[in-house]
């Protein structure tokens, strides 16, 4: 019960808070802007396409709810929330009349796959390498790794992805230039291997940055851990280094990294969006990029809302898994 009251409940509240703050900010942005996006967007739409009047009306209704100018401020806020809760973001207007949900939904599996594998791999790599380097700070490999990652860490995601793209598809064409996969989707080796090959570079470019970040943190944590009483004591008893490293150093270094992962998911997600743009990977990032080019506000708004809810929920799940790893929280 204490676990529920002292651990789970505050986090659920925090989750609700994140979504509340995020949705409210998203609601406020267009209303505080000097430009009226609706007229701009509708003007553009009707100038280029031949649209039936009913369609335009439906679009205007959605836009007014989302960017809203109809009714009082409070009414608009309520209407906005209703749309968010229903998950109804109306039609896209660059691909009119396809609904926004469908457009985003098509990109979602690619992004989740890319992001999921990048998060897991970079976390594990970062924690393990960081712990190793923190436990053996004087070894040559540890110092080389440290120096390399310190240089890689601050490089913006875009630049990193772009350099990889130039290096491995253009100068050394060992990877396909763009896209998600070739062939027809299915559970056959050809298709799956094509997915893997296409996702390799995009994944690497997120993983490198995220691993560097995790490595630097883990190394600092591990070197504190190494001077902790229980590690010194186990070493004094001549417990094998391998065992000390895994069960004493890494095991304890991991714990704060779980909480931190929950906080940094957003940043990794941003990295994934940019990477997808660079590699024209067919995920949410590319959908976002296309909607930027075509000024498709509904889609941009939808992706913003979805990412807020999605990241908040993913952080919540990561956070809630913490008691599985820390007995001090589990058995209070």
């Amino acid at each position: 019960m204490t676990l529920l009251k002292e651990f789970i409940l505050p986090r659920l509240l925090q989750w609700a808070m994140v979504i509340f703050v995020g949705v409210t900010i998203t609601f406020l942005i267009p209303r505080l802007s000097p430009v009226n996006p609706i007229d701009q967007a509708l003007g553009r739409l009707t100038a280029f396409q031949n649209v039936e009047p009913e369609g335009v009306l439906a679009l205007r209704a959605t836009l007014e709810d989302l960017y809203g100018l109809g009714g009082s401020f409070f009414d608009q806020y309520i209407a906005f929330w209703q749309r968010v809760i229903r998950g109804d973001l109306g039609p896209s207007f660059s691909a009119f009349p396809r609904p926004v949900n469908e457009l985003i939904g098509a990109g979602l599996p690619w992004t989740i796959g890319l992001l999921g594998s990048a998060v897991v791999l970079s976390w594990v790599l970062g924690v393990v390498l960081g712990s190793l380097a923190g436990y053996f700070p004087h070894r040559l490999w540890s110092q080389v790794l440290d120096k390399v990652l310190i240089v890689v860490y601050p490089i913006p995601y875009y630049i990193l992805a772009f350099v990889l793209l130039m290096a491995f598809t253009y100068y050394l064409p060992i990877f396909p230039l763009v896209g998600g996969a070739k062939g027809t989707p299915g559970l056959n080796w050809d298709y799956i291997s094509s997915v893997l090959i296409h996702s390799f570079l995009p994944a690497v470019s997120i993983i490198v940055g995220a691993t560097a970040f995790r490595f630097i943190m883990s190394k600092a944590l591990a070197s504190t851990e190494t001077s902790s009483d229980y590690v010194t004591y186990a070493e004094m008893a001549a417990v094998p280094k391998r065992k000390v490293l895994f069960f004493y150093v890494t095991r304890n270094t991991m714990l704060p990294q779980i909480t931190d992962l929950a906080l940094s998911l957003g940043a990794i997600f941003e990295g994934a969006l940019i990477t997808e743009v660079v590699f024209a990977y067919p995920g949410v990032g590319s959908v976002l990029y296309n909607s930027i080019i075509s000024a498709d506000y509904n889609v941009i708004m939808g992706i913003t809302l979805l990412s807020i809810v999605g990241i908040a929920t993913a952080s919540l799940i990561v956070d809630l898994s913490y008691p599985l790893f820390d007995p001090r929280v589990r058995f209070r």
Partner: peptide, 20 residues
């Protein structure tokens, strides 16, 4: 207070030390 690994059960600490 801090010489026992906080994330390891007592019997596992004994196991680590004995089997060394």
């Amino acid at each position: 207070m801090h010489v026992l690994n906080p994330v390891r059960r007592i019997r596992d600490s004994f196991y680590d030390f004995i089997t060394t």
